[in-house]
Design a protein around this nucleic acid. Sequence first.
DNA 1: TTATCTGCAAATTCTTTGCACAATA
DNA 2: TATTGTGCAAAGAATTTGCAGATAA
Lengths: 144, 144
Amino acid sequence: METARGLRKTLHDRGMRMTPQRQLVLDAVRSLEHATPEQICQRVQETAPTVNITTIYRTLDLLDRLGLVRHTHLGHGAPSYSVEDHQHVHLVCHVCGSIQEIPCELLDPLVGTLRERDGFELDASHLALSGTCRDCLKQEQEIE
Amino acid sequence: METARGLRKTLHDRGMRMTPQRQLVLDAVRSLEHATPEQICQRVQETAPTVNITTIYRTLDLLDRLGLVRHTHLGHGAPSYSVEDHQHVHLVCHVCGSIQEIPCELLDPLVGTLRERDGFELDASHLALSGTCRDCLKQEQEIE
DNA sequence: TTATCTGCAAATTCTTTGCACAATA
DNA sequence: TATTGTGCAAAGAATTTGCAGATAA
């Protein structure tokens, strides 16, 4: 697993530098789970108050490209970041905005299909699936 | 299908009013496919130059809640709107940002599972699935 | 020492809100 | 005519950029 190699090595392999800021951001994402850049910034600033939100954005982008963290748009507004190995799938209702989590094993068949068909490695660990929840479906039927 | 009932009736059933702006926005979404609010605004303004971007946002929100259009976050930045019956699924690579479309029938098994398990009606017509594309997978392996 | 990274300030982009006027039913 | 909807201006989030100085290798 990539994380186990250490952030330092992952960066160096690509000619990039290890910095305290980068470690702090990765740690913050890991401990918070599904946090916005803003929340991650606050956590980092508990340890290093001078770290700027700009650095948070740049670092999250970097970690995302390195595959160490992932982001999801759970709704409108700021995206939500997690470490790559935090596993769950979200069902987002586009009517009422409610969110429920389901085990990501339910996506295993789809992961297999896309791998064979398109060579695409689906990351089921942070997916947001949009649709209509049970309650809103019921309401819709009452109107018709 | 909801669209066939006509926008007017759908609105009236909920005590809302039919306006030229609402029809124009729906038409624009339908003809553009995967357009941002900005792009939709431009299209609407070709016919009705005084329509304000605020109205575009308000109307897209409304049409989304009515289930006539859907939005997806294909990456960072503005979301992308389509009419509900425009069917495809996007594979978004989180490394290079590339997007490929796949037929949404591939998701039928998952749709069935969620319907039975959670009463959740997954909307597979505008989904964005995040992962790593074939090319980026290859590059990662070369580095290791 | 030198290329990379960071902090800061300012600019951009995207979206929402308040309110007076206009349009629908 | 009673709401509901729209345009406008302004405010507010969220995010990006340019650049000089700091820092890792």
